[in-house]
Design a protein around this nucleic acid. Structure first.
Lengths: 228, 228
DNA sequence: GCTACTTTGTGTCATAATCACGCAATTGAT
DNA sequence: ATCAATTGCGTGATTATGACACAAAGTAGC
């Protein structure tokens, strides 16, 4: 039985789209490269997959060493195969996306990058490689995901107001959703739980605080919104 | 700027789940291997990705050389990374799934396999590698896909009866769907078009024949069925 | 305290979609 | 002509959705 690792194989990169929700804006984390190719340009954080490493292990390594992050929600997005996507040669990219509450983590640029910064998803700079394609795929996935998975659980604080959840949905989906119908839909689905406390110190009526219902299984919730 | 193909990289395989619908049963195409590992065992058709090959090109090559098939519906499924998934060493698998009308194609085993055969999806033999996991992932994907994409277009003949379409949905989803409500839903959505002709030669009432509405865009159709 | 203003929470009603059926029409076999 | 099986069409109850009105709770200014 022959072994195959003696073959000349394409390299495998793992690239990450890290989403954060901050000041009513959905953002993504980008890295400013300090080496060629695309030196001083912005790209998604990523790295080559090591020989015995799983994809998730590579993701964790990237998040930890390049940005000082750990234990995020991670999901495989898609694998990209354009033979011209990397000027150095044939590199397959297996893309993952992560969700993070930017208030709960502090992003720090690792030594392998000039800088790490949040960019609002509709104000991205030019990206190296085929990372714009990867990014757009991730946004589409997130839009689909939020309709049947409690994405807010990863993006918001542990407790949050109905308005915050509502704004998150409008922001991610890019559409207006009637505030009162949204409330009814979310509550009827048992999607979130009223903590019984209210947020104080605001100018107007103090909103009730909620947490996500962790007992809710997958596919228990579905927001019926027709995207276009 | 260094190049990276000098590194020792994991190998990349492309594996395929080919679905067909035949005699009211959803089946998948499996290959009987004629070499180690898993010699004489059943696996999904697959191959190593060549250096300058796209995933789709690899899929076409596999379908053509191993089974004599071409021009199928193809969609990327998922990438699998278990370091122990291949006894020969580290091999990443990028899985695709295909849909085919078995009546329109003749499956022929290529010289690289002992045999190629259709297996009903709930009567699969033991599979080599991690192909059972890949297969289950594909079935889940197909169940989700059929709710908002005209999967039947790929699996059925050009023209088909309402009953055939109905049975396909029940079969893929594994649930009972009320025949009359299904009909109304499908017709109201403009999902299919009545050809005006009927299928003759049957014992009972001759059913009308339909074709899929090719002008229907993505996401125009959604069957509201709560799985579980 | 009273009023103005903003935000949050609750309800209502028309419309649309879904679900669970009944029943008639069409066909070949008897 | 009758029967059995299958297909096509319809109907009413229930539920979900969309578009609102309006009350309640809070702060600020007077």
């Amino acid at each position: 039985m022959k072994t195959f690792n003696s073959y000349k194989n394409p390299a495998i990169a793992v690239d990450l789209v890290v989403f954060g929700y901050h000041d009513k804006v959905l953002s993504a984390l980008l890295l400013n490269r300090n080496e060629e190719p695309f030196k001083d340009g912005w790209t998604l954080p990523g790295s080559f997959l090591q020989m015995e490493e799983t994809f998730r292990a590579a993701c964790s390594r990237i998040l930890q060493t390049k940005m000082g992050l750990s234990d995020l929600f991670l999901e495989q997005l898609y694998s990209f195969d354009d033979p011209a996507r990397d000027p150095r040669g044939r590199v397959i990219s297996v893309a993952y996306y992560a969700l993070i509450n930017p208030h709960a983590f502090n992003v720090v640029a690792g030594k392998m990058a000039n800088d790490v910064k949040w960019f609002p998803v509709n104000k991205l700079p030019r990206l190296g490689f085929d990372h714009k394609v990867i990014f757009k795929t991730a946004v589409e996935r997130l839009k689909a995901k939020i309709l049947y998975y409690p994405v807010g659980f990863e993006l918001l604080n542990d407790t949050f107001t109905m308005t915050e959840l509502h704004e998150l949905y409008e922001c991610v989906l890019g559409i207006d959703i009637d505030r009162r119908n949204f409330r009814r839909k979310i509550l009827d689905a048992g999607y979130i739980i009223n903590t019984g406390t209210k947020r104080a110190g605001l100018k107007n009526r103090h909103p009730e605080l909620y947490t996500f219902n962790k007992k809710l299984g997958e596919n228990q919730f579905q927001l019926h919104i027709q995207i276009e």
